[in-house]
Design a binder for these strands. Structure first.
Length: 574
RNA sequence: CGAGGUGUGGCUCAGUUUGGUAGAGCGCCGCGUUCGGGACGCGGAGGCCGGAGGUUCAAAUCCUCUCACCUCGACCA
């Protein structure tokens, strides 16, 4: 492509609205332009990168037996009501009505539609397993879109759905996808990590997220430097040190005056004890589809409750911190002095750290008083125990006991064992060898295509701009003639351009009448992996300068050597 | 939804406190000199200052309302 013909509006300055580097560079390099909050147009360069990533994904999906389909973006409400997700998704779904007043939504995902298709067309175990996927726009009305296309309201996603006869089949499909995802992200040139993920209220038997490591990723990952354990902190387990934790002293429970001491910090300072000597109680309101419930959670004072774990444990729709009114109604006192002793009518759940305490200090359910020497099991009854705490760096790894570390990442892929969640609610059944009706066992597997691109930039850039990994570069090669007025240079550049094109190598010829500095800056900014400079040395001696964007390497080569070298650099990727 | 902030030419921003006919740099168009890492000179085009209403002889500037966007929080496959 001749650059003089391209729509490639590069910017010298950083757009005010862009916070993270990938967003800034995508705008500056003329890859995207914003249309509305969380909605972007992809300009020619961006469109090309999308194609490259999609091509890799298609190849790997097809290699595993995936078949591509294409489903509508606009979906009728009926099917969503059948699974109950019309309400669960709520405001995050873009909803609309047609002229007859029928309700539709813009698809945030496609479990409903694909299951509807398969339940109609698949009746026999002979037709299974099936791996169906599509690559297409998704719509989620995020509360707060941010970071450019990293969290946008319209984005491109590859979503594959697996349908199997039994759990073993699902395991096999899941393995295939796990393997394919590793290949995809490797081919995209990304440094990433597959981590155990929260499988949500779906309660499936497994889920992994593929996280591209990046400092400003939105997700937190806990990982063990010694063994393979890695998990999203939403679900990660770890064992906090119990050093210095008080043992039961056999002392009787005692009420102490703690005027105005509401927080863990207040109480520990006032009573001259450690935070871990205190049993913290937090009151939540859990909302289910039919009812609501007051839940009190106990946890050791120096630990934090993981609300996602709690929500999953309760299997509720929403979870909110109880308001003061609710707390007063339940515990006869306001927040800060609540405790488990004598508490009635409230579901009490102890985190494992609280249940393990020999004794501790709790609120007395009376303003300005706490109890000390409270022994769990003696002074109050622990109804339920669960793992509800948030992991911290330094926790012992649940597998090998080494100290866990925490890092940040961008979630670019998520694979999920769904089991029968959708086949049950949508009655997707088949007849097995014995003529017996069975539910299909499903899995779903997503890759955020546009987010992957942002992640790739986040991980591959320098002060001059983007450094595309070769396989996803919009063009692998750019030719820069130094002087557009020099006929010999331009002729040589043109010949080289024709030669590369005839070899099937997509090339940009920067034929603009600009000074060399401008061309170099633009070539760096848009991140083309290989740059060939055609200057005096080319005009006089047929020597071309090949510069590698990623490492700055420079080679001065004759034409045939040049072509050979380029071929070699690009070949392994094909 | 809560808190804070910003809207002035394509981009980055001054001007608002103290009302008096709209500015700079970059980009864009033309001519010339340049041409190996974002050149320089000269001449141009381009803005009803986010929108509506109000105060005033006079509003980018003051007041009210509203919209959009950004940041933090809550929330979130």
């Amino acid at each position: 492509m001749r650059m003089s013909m391209m729509l490639m509006p590069t910017l010298r300055e950083i757009p005010a609205e862009a916070e993270v580097i990938s967003h800034q560079l995508m705008v500056r390099a003329g890859i995207i332009r914003k249309v509305a909050s969380g909605m972007y147009s992809y300009l020619p360069l961006g469109r090309r990168v999308i194609e490259k990533v999609e091509k890799i994904i298609r190849e790997e999906m097809n290699a595993k037996g995936g078949q591509e389909v294409l489903m509508p973006i606009v979906q009728p409400s009926e099917i969503w009501k059948e699974t109950g997700r019309w309400d669960v998704y709520g405001d995050e779904m873009f909803k609309l009505k047609d002229r007859h007043g029928r309700e539709f939504c813009l698809g945030p995902t496609h479990e409903e539609l694909i299951t509807d298709l398969v339940r109609q067309e698949v009746k026999s175990y002979r037709q299974l397993p099936l791996l169906l996927y599509q690559i297409q726009n998704k719509y989620r009305d995020e509360i707060r879109p941010r970071f450019g296309v990293m969290r946008s309201r319209e984005f491109i996603m590859k979503d594959l759905y697996s349908f199997d006869c039994d759990e073993a089949g699902l395991d096999a499909s899941y393995e295939k996808m796990y393997d394919a995802y590793n290949r995809i992200f490797q081919r995209c040139g990304l440094v990433y990590r597959a981590v155990e993920a929260d499988s949500g209220a779906i309660g499936g038997s497994g889920s992994h997220e593929f996280m591209v490591t990046a400092d400003n990723g939105e997700a937190e990952i806990a990982y063990c430097p010694a063994c393979q354990y890695a998990a999203n902190t939403e679900k990660a387990e770890g064992n906090p040190s119990d050093e210095g934790q008080p043992a039961a002293k056999n002392a009787a429970m005692e009420k102490v005056h703690t005027p105005g001491m509401r927080t863990i910090e207040d109480v520990s300072n006032y009573l001259k004890v450690n935070a871990k000597d205190i049993i913290k109680m937090v009151v939540y309101e859990a909302v289910y589809s039919e009812k609501a419930e007051i839940v009190a959670v106990l946890i050791r004072g120096d630990q934090e409750i993981n609300e996602i774990k709690l929500k999953n444990y309760l299997d509720c729709l929403h979870l909110v911190m109880a308001s003061d009114d609710v707390i007063v109604a339940a515990a006869k006192t306001s927040g800060g002095f609540v405790g488990p002793v004598g508490l009635t009518g409230v579901r009490l759940i102890a985190d494992k750290t609280a249940a393990a305490m020999g004794e501790g200090i709790t609120g007395a359910n009376e303003a300005d008083y706490h109890f000390r020497h409270v022994v769990p099991g003696r002074d109050f009854i622990i109804g339920e125990t669960a793992d509800l705490r948030t992991v911290k760096a330094g926790d012992a790894c649940p597998h090998c006991g080494k100290a866990l570390e925490i890092t940040r990442g961008i979630e670019v892929g998520h694979i999920f064992k769904l089991g029968t969640k959708y086949s049950e609610s949508l009655k997707a059944v088949f007849l097995d060898e014995n003529g017996k009706e069975k539910k299909m066992i499903m899995g779903c597997y997503g890759i955020g295509v546009t987010r992957t691109i942002a992640a790739a930039i986040e991980q591959n850039h320098d002060e001059n701009g983007i450094i595309w990994p070769v396989p996803i570069a919009p063009y692998p090669v750019i030719i820069v003639p130094i002087s557009s007025k020099d006929e010999v240079q331009m002729k040589k550049a043109q010949e080289l351009y024709d030669r590369l094109n005839s070899m099937g190598i997509e090339t940009i010829l920067d034929d603009r009448n600009e000074r060399p500095g401008v061309k170099f800056k633009d070539a760096d900014l848009i991140g083309i992996p290989l740059r060939i400079t055609v200057g005096k040395k080319a005009a006089d001696d047929d020597l071309y300068e090949l510069k590698v964007r990623s490492n700055g390497e420079d080679h001065l080569l004759g034409l045939e050597d040049l072509l050979l070298t380029i071929k070699k650099v690009l070949e392994p990727i094909g």
